[in-house]
Design a protein around this nucleic acid. Structure first.
Length: 443
RNA sequence: GCGGGGAUGGCCCAGCGGUACGGCGGCAGCCUGCUAAGCUGUUUCUCAAUGAGAGCGAGGGUUCGAAUCCCUCUCCCCGCGCCA
């Protein structure tokens, strides 16, 4: 959530951000409407409680003096009634005011492009030599601002769906039978390749100063609500029936809420934590998109980078996270571009977000494989996480970035590393020590 | 799942109907040739702030007054049961 004090002091900043993000301003209006009443009520309640405390204290004194206390008791009962009426009203106002506050998005970093639509994300850089089918060259050149390196191929790579079927690497049909669309059985060498990716990423991040955790795969409402926003709840989260538990859609939320309600010491920061967990997503808004294969699924494994840091350091750490993720894709030799996501496509928690989009030859497109966000103090404030400094407590900044989302990276490998005859997949060199094989074929 | 014991400020711990004790740590100051020790203050949140209110795992209840008594729930520890 945003800083309410800052909102009271500088409403114009928040109105401007709402405009730049193409949000409605009604939540901010609603906040101010309710906040005035809230503060007025609070004053009244506190004054009455003050009166009550004085009366109550006088009772114990009078009892010692053997004086009569019945009339005072009666007046305190009267005060209690008035307080209780106001407090009930206050609770209602507060609930509404808070839901308005939660709906107000984070501030934006000055470098975020102000516009709508993914096509307006700013391309920051490109890396690698992509194999681009002849007909897709214009699209590729456009998507990289003519800066991407590529080799023209005379045939399109086989889609990962066809290739995986041919090589017995996934069973989508039976997964559909037992669980539904967007589920999969991952098989044989593709499973080993997945495990290799996971081990590779865990080792990689350990070397870069991350501690690694496998978090709970479910979180209670309070933790989930602190770590994410209502849009995410609605569109992506699975709820466990009859329990106060939600399946995580990313280990980010489990790591962020790990420190909920705690006060850290400034010296403990930064905290670099990598999470490894399955991610469960409803993909509610994605009907008809990427329906085939394992590109967009309800369940996949992910290694995630997460950082808690001092407020003054977070912009440097965003670059660090991006660099780590880029280095992973470089080691895997997957061509990609990096985009600075524009204001209209940014989630409400993020003040800035980079996406890494890998080249998928069969689709002739760059598609998202990594999201690196700086949520500044927004997420940590909702979770009531603070750190102690000489000059009092502050809210840390939190950042997160994908390292490896397994299914998408498997697809990227399948589409970028096909053998010339289209009958096999070459394992990226960096993974061979982990797989123990360098080729996946039908044998 | 059953029985017993717990949860108190950043940490440890006392209090068990009269408004949170003490210690450790942190910060500020005093003192000292420097350091250490010692001494003093401070340490969470909210508000229209020289003031006031809230806060003892969470939520209810009883009472003029609840950390303290009652109810529900959560988590931790010990034992029993079950179990990959």
């Amino acid at each position: 959530m945003i800083d309410v004090k800052k909102l009271r002091e500088n409403p114009e900043i928040f109105y401007k951000v709402a405009e730049n993000r193409f949000y409605g301003k009604e939540f901010i209006d609603r906040f101010f409407e309710l906040d005035g009443k809230w503060r007025e009520n609070l004053k009244q309640i506190n004054d009455l409680k003050h009166e009550k405390n004085i009366a109550t204290e006088s009772i114990s004194r009078k009892i010692k003096e053997n004086a009569d206390v019945e009339t005072i008791k009666e007046s305190v009962r009267e005060l209690n009634n008035r307080i209780s009426v106001l407090e009930t009203e206050q609770k209602n106002i507060e609930t509404e005011r808070n839901s308005a506050v939660y709906a107000i998005p984070n501030l934006l970093h000055e470098t975020v492009p102000i516009c709508k639509g993914d096509e307006n994300n700013r391309v920051v850089k490109t890396w690698g030599v992509a194999q681009v089918f002849r007909d897709d060259v214009p699209e590729f050149r456009n998507a990289t601002n003519n800066a991407g390196q590529y080799m023209i191929t005379e045939k399109k790579p086989i889609s990962h769906v066809d290739l995986a079927e041919k090589l017995s690497l996934v069973d989508l049909e039976r997964a559909g039978k037992v669980a539904g669309a967007r589920f999969y059985y991952l098989k044989n060498r593709l499973l080993k390749l997945e495990m290799a990716l996971e081990n590779f990423a865990v080792d990689f991040l350990s070397e870069r100063g991350f501690s690694v955790v496998e978090p709970p795969f479910m979180l209670n409402y309070q933790s989930m609500a602190g770590a994410t926003d209502m849009e995410t709840f609605r569109d992506t989260l699975y709820k466990i029936d009859g329990e106060d538990l939600y399946l995580i859609s990313t280990s980010e939320h489990a790591i962020a809420s790990m420190l909920r309600g705690e006060i850290l010491d400034e010296k403990e920061l930064p905290l670099r934590i990598a999470g490894f967990s399955p991610c469960f997503r409803k993909e509610a808004g994605a009907h008809g998109k990427d329906t085939k294969g394992i590109f967009r699924v309800h369940q996949f494994n992910k290694i995630e980078q997460f950082i808690f840091c001092r407020e003054e350091d977070s912009w440097d750490f965003l670059e660090e996270l991006l660099q780590n993720s880029e280095d992973i894709f470089r080691k895997l030799n997957i061509p990609y571009r990096v985009v600075n996501v524009c204001s209209g496509e940014l989630g409400s928690l993020a003040a800035k977000k980079y996406d890494i989009e890998a080249w998928f030859g069969s689709q002739g497109k760059f598609r998202e494989v990594v999201s690196a966000s700086n949520d500044t103090d927004y997420q940590a404030r909702s979770l009531d996480i603070r750190y102690r400094t000489k000059d009092g407590n502050r809210t840390p900044h939190t950042l997160n970035s994908t390292a490896i989302a397994t299914t998408r990276v498997l697809v990227a490998i399948m589409e970028n590393n096909q053998t010339d005859d289209g009958e096999g997949i070459m394992v990226p060199e960096a993974l061979v020590p982990y797989t123990g094989f360098d080729l996946i074929t039908s044998e």
